[in-house]
């Protein structure tokens, strides 16, 4: 058993063990394939209306986190609006990988999907912190980073390779830790976490040859 992700205060080893037993014991087994989205890509998709009429319509918020008060994030939206985002233990937090609310810092950028509460806050189902999705060209390759340019002005961006985390997909294949097939001059889609400190990007996934 490997504990790659921070288990968080509520889900330690025993809880995982318990949930595994429950998951394998009384599970429904479903085969065959169907369509679906890529998990982190969901941050960029329009909120999907739930099929269940009892669940309120999803709302979506984005901006920079100005303050963190306990489990409430104060967020300044890009168009001058303010959001209060309530995190719960059921809120998923993505910051380069699935992590916990402890990883969120003031100054981070944020996308959140959740439900409007009567008191004006948004109860978040999922938040994606500092997520960026860049269409760029590979200009240089080093041991721990890719040099990229993106946009009309060919803005230079440094994409950092994070051991155990950065994955690559080639020609529509499944994600692999093998990065050795990335070539200079290729067009690449980079999904990653922006680092406000030095304006570089930690790469979660680089997709080439698609």
């Amino acid at each position: 058993m490997s504990n790659r992700q921070d288990p968080g205060p509520r889900s330690g080893f025993d809880r995982r063990r318990f949930l595994t037993t429950a998951a394998l014991g009384g599970a429904t087994i479903v085969g065959a394939s169907a369509l679906g989205g890529i998990d982190a890509d969901a941050a960029f998709a329009a909120p999907m209306p739930s099929l269940d009429p009892a669940i309120a319509k999803s709302t979506f918020a984005e901006g920079r986190i100005t303050a963190i008060n306990g489990s409430v994030l104060e967020v300044a939206g890009s168009y001058g609006e303010q959001h209060l985002i309530q995190l719960t233990h059921a809120t998923s937090v993505w910051k380069l990988r699935a992590t916990t609310a402890d990883a969120i810092e003031a100054g981070d950028g944020l996308y959140a999907r959740g439900v409007d509460m009567p008191d004006g806050t948004i109860a978040a189902d999922a938040v994606w912190v500092n997520i960026v999705n860049l269409f760029c060209t590979v200009r240089g390759i080093a041991k721990d980073r890719l040099h990229l340019t993106h946009g009309d002005g060919n803005h230079a961006v440094v994409g950092r390779i994070v051991p155990e985390t950065t994955t690559a997909s080639y020609l529509g294949g499944s994600l692999t830790p093998d990065l050795s097939r990335v070539r200079i001059g290729q067009s690449a889609q980079v999904l990653g976490a922006w680092r406000p400190a030095d304006d570089s990007v930690d790469i979660a996934r680089v997709t080439v040859g698609h």
Binding site: R4, S11, A90, A98, A126
Partner: peptide
């Protein structure tokens, strides 16, 4: 409702 919360191998 959420995205991935936790993952482990067993």
């Amino acid at each position: 409702r959420s995205a991935l919360l936790d993952a482990w191998d067993d």
